[in-house]
Computed example of a mutant assay.
Amino acid sequence: MRHGKRFNHLGRTSPHRKSMLANMASSLIVHKRLTTTVAKAKALRQYVEPIITRSKVDDTHSRRVVFSYLKDKDSSRVLFDEVAERIADRPGGYTRIIKLGNRLGDNAEMCMIELVDFNEIYQQEEKQAKGKTRRSRRGSKKKSSAPQAEDTSTQTASTSKAVAEPEEPQTQEENAVAESETQEEVVELSGEVVVEETTESEANEIVEAIKEEEKKADSDDNPQAKDTSSENDDEKETKG
Rank of each mutant, 00 (worst) to 15 (best):
T156L: 10
F80H: 08
K42H: 13
E125F: 11
K130Y: 10
S145W: 01
I29S: 01
T60A: 14
Q123H: 12
N119P: 02
L28M: 03
Q224F: 04
C111E: 05
M20H: 06
R45P: 07
N8Y: 14
D106T: 03
A149F: 04
T35A: 11
F118Q: 02
V116D: 14
K161E: 14
I113V: 08
S201L: 05
A41R: 06
N175T: 00
E202M: 05
K42D: 07
T182S: 11
I98N: 04
A164T: 02
S190C: 03
E184S: 07
T198E: 08
Q128A: 15
V195K: 05
K18F: 06
S62G: 11
P15Y: 09
G11H: 09
P50E: 10
A129V: 13
G240L: 13
A203E: 04
T198A: 06
Y122A: 13
V186H: 04
T198C: 03
G93C: 00
G4Q: 10
S55L: 02
N204Q: 08
R2L: 04
M20Q: 08
I121Y: 14
S201K: 01
E82W: 03
V38G: 08
I87V: 15
L79N: 01
N119L: 04
K40T: 05
K141M: 12
S219V: 11
R33H: 11
Q170A: 12
N23E: 15
R90M: 13
V177Q: 08
V66A: 13
A129G: 10
V194L: 13
A203R: 03
K40V: 00
S158Y: 15
P50W: 01
E192Y: 09
A176S: 14
S62T: 14
E179A: 10
R12L: 06
A146T: 08
A164G: 09
